Computed example of a mutant assay.
Amino acid sequence: MPDNVRTPEGVEFRPHLFGATSFDGSLATTFKRAVTNVVCDNTMSAGLAETGQQIKIRHSRYSKLRLSEAREALNIVYEIADDFAAEVKRLCEQTVTDRQWRSFLDAHVPLPEEPGRSRTHAEHKRDALDRLWRHDDRVAPWQNTAYGVVQAVNTFTHHEQTVRGAVRAERNMLRAVTGGVDDLDTGTLHTLDAVMAGVAAA
C-alpha cells in the first residue's frame, strides 16, 4: 500500500482500497477506493467530484468466481494518490469568500422561519460548521477555499454530528462502505457550485 502523501497545499492523506462483506448476505461484498485525511482521520471520496470507484459482488453460490475482478481492482490503489492530489489542488485554488461561505451555510443548513427545536438544531449545526471553518486545525488551514468547505462538512459529520443507535466509529465505517462518504462529499460540492453560481450572478 502506498505511504502517506502530502500535497503542496499541505493536505496529508493516505490512499487505500478497503473491502467489506457480511455474514448474512445483507451487504454485498464491496471493494472500494478511498482516502483517509491524516490530520483528522476522515474517510473521504477518492474522486471528491465523482463517486469513488468500487466493485460490488452480490452474495451467491457463484460469487467466488468474480473475486478475480477484485484482485484486478487492487491495482487502482496506486492511481488514487494522483487523482486525489489533483482534486485537492483544484479545490484549494477555488476561492470561497466569507459571503459565499455564509450563502453555503444558508443552502446546506437552512434556518426554519419559525422558532422551535428544528431552528435551534440548525443554528447549532451552523455554529459548529462556522467554528470549524474559522478556528479548527482540521479545517481552518484551508479556510476560504472549496477544499475547506468540503473539509468542514466532512469533519463535522465524522466527529461532531449526533450519533444514535451506533458507535461513532462503526457509523463512519458503514457510511464509507455503503457510499455515504461519496454522497456527502459530492453533495457538498454540488451545493457549493450552485451557491457560487448564484452569488456570481447576483
Rank of each mutant, 00 (worst) to 15 (best):
W133N: 08
S22A: 15
H124V: 06
Y78K: 11
S63E: 10
R14G: 04
A73D: 11
A86W: 00
N144I: 01
L65C: 01
V96E: 01
L48M: 12
R171T: 06
Q54P: 02
F23N: 15
S26D: 12
A20S: 15
F18W: 03
F104T: 03
A34N: 15
R14M: 09
A70Y: 02
R58F: 07
T188W: 07
G52M: 03
V39K: 05
T97D: 04
W101I: 09
D83C: 14
L192S: 11
L189G: 11
N4E: 07
D182R: 06
H16R: 03
D127R: 10
R99W: 00
T97Y: 02
L189S: 10
A86Y: 00
L17K: 07
A81W: 02
G165F: 00
V96Y: 00
P112Q: 14
G165L: 01
G25A: 05
V39Y: 02
A49D: 12
R117G: 09
R66V: 08
Q94Y: 05
D98F: 07
E79F: 06
L74I: 04
R168Q: 08
Q53N: 06
A201V: 10
R33K: 01
S118F: 03
Y78I: 08
E93R: 09
T191A: 02
H190Y: 10
R66C: 07
R71S: 05
T30Y: 02
I57G: 11
T120N: 13
D106W: 00
G52F: 02
R90Y: 00
R58I: 07
A122I: 06
V177H: 10
V149Q: 10
V139H: 14
H124P: 00
T21Y: 12
S26A: 14
E160D: 14
A202F: 08
R171P: 01
R102T: 08
A140H: 12
R33V: 06
R99N: 06
Q151M: 09
L184S: 04
G10R: 12
H121D: 02
T191D: 00
G25R: 08
R119Y: 01
F156E: 08
R164G: 06
R61V: 12
Y78W: 06
W133F: 04
Q54E: 12
T145Q: 07
A194R: 12
A169T: 15
E50P: 10
L65Y: 00
H59Q: 13
E9M: 13
A202Q: 15
T191E: 01
D130G: 09
A122D: 07
G198T: 15
A46W: 00
G165R: 00
D130E: 13
R6F: 02
N144G: 01
V139G: 14
H135M: 13
V195E: 09
D106S: 05
K56M: 15
S26Q: 12
T145D: 04
A122W: 01
G148H: 11
A202P: 02
E93P: 07
V150K: 02
R134M: 11
P15W: 00
T21I: 14
R164A: 10
R117H: 13
D83Y: 10
A107P: 15
T191F: 01
D24V: 14
S103F: 06
H135K: 15
T155F: 06
T157I: 06
A194F: 03
T191G: 04
A197W: 04
T186S: 11
V181L: 08
A166D: 14
L67C: 09
A152Q: 08
F104S: 04
N4I: 10
C92P: 09
I80Q: 03
